[in-house]
């Protein structure tokens, strides 16, 4: 996502940051568009059901702008309405990755000059997770989005354990290799099973007395830096993260760690 101006105070003149709501055509109108499918055929009853749902979603004056029967007893709806809710932007605190963007060359130079050696990084998809596309994009030589993966960096020695690695196996590998950083990938689910797995991993590292010697990272399409911190990791990387962002974070945090 591109941020054009990260200063909310300069976003719109006259805006009350204590009560920000959706913008449709004019400031404060609260207009939003929602779309959803219903498991009932299109018709007057389904139309009223869609409107009532929109009211329960917090929308006043819901109006149906589009309806379509999808067949097999389903229908599709687009509605406009006025959102009843506001948020106080001044009370929102969101931790963000704070390291500077660095080039491939800068990252290698920083690590090799300041640490005097390569950083050893162990990566794995843990638990039952078999989705390695994310961790492969970050770690493998070929990389992602036109950037090299961490294996290509002279500053890093990468050990990618692949998928469905238990936390206990990962811990054994960390001990065996003397890793400096561990990158865990999880496709987090709504059932929280992957979150439990991540929480257990951090507890296991603590229980083994290794926490202060390791940088702990996690990543996945539904991971945020905020969730990662709450789980006890040092950083979390979400969808769209490129290898160089992870590499820059590792290099700068390791140098801070050395201090």
């Amino acid at each position: 996502m591109t941020t054009r101006d990260d200063s909310p105070a300069r976003a719109v003149s006259g805006l009350d940051l204590h009560a920000v709501g959706p913008y449709g055509d004019t400031l404060g109108d609260g207009i939003v568009q929602v779309s959803f499918s219903l498991p009932v055929p299109a018709g007057p009853e389904a139309r009223e059901a869609a409107r009532r749902l929109a009211v329960q979603m917090g929308l006043n004056e819901p109006q149906v702008y589009h309806e379509a029967d999808l067949g097999y007893g389903f229908s599709f709806w687009i509605l406009y309405g006025k959102c009843r809710h506001h948020v106080d932007v001044t009370r929102i605190v969101v931790p963000k990755i704070d390291t500077a963007p660095l080039s491939f060359e800068e990252i290698n130079a920083l690590v090799l000059e300041k640490a005097g050696r390569r950083l050893r990084i162990v990566g794995a998809c843990t638990g039952t997770d078999a989705h390695t596309v994310g961790i492969d994009a970050i770690l493998n030589m070929k990389g992602f989005a036109g950037e090299y993966g961490l294996e290509r960096y002279p500053a890093f020695e990468v050990i990618n354990l692949g998928s469905q690695v238990s936390n206990a196996t990962l811990l054994s590998k960390v001990r065996e290799t003397g890793a400096d950083a561990v990158l865990v990938s999880q496709v987090v689910t709504q059932k929280d099973v992957h979150l439990s797995n991540l929480a257990e991993w951090v507890d296991m590292v603590e229980a083994d007395g290794l926490r202060q010697d390791l940088l702990l990272l996690c990543g996945g399409p539904r991971i945020t830096h905020e969730v990662a911190l709450e789980l006890g990791f040092d950083a979390g990387f979400g969808a769209g993260t490129t290898p160089r962002q992870v590499a820059a974070w590792l290099a700068q945090k390791w140098v801070q760690h050395l201090r």
């Binding site: 979150l195 439990s196 507890d203 229980a207 006890g232």
Partner: peptide, 10 residues
Amino acid sequence: GAYQRLAAAD
């Protein structure tokens, strides 16, 4: 503690 983490119970 966060989530079901047990570290605080040590």
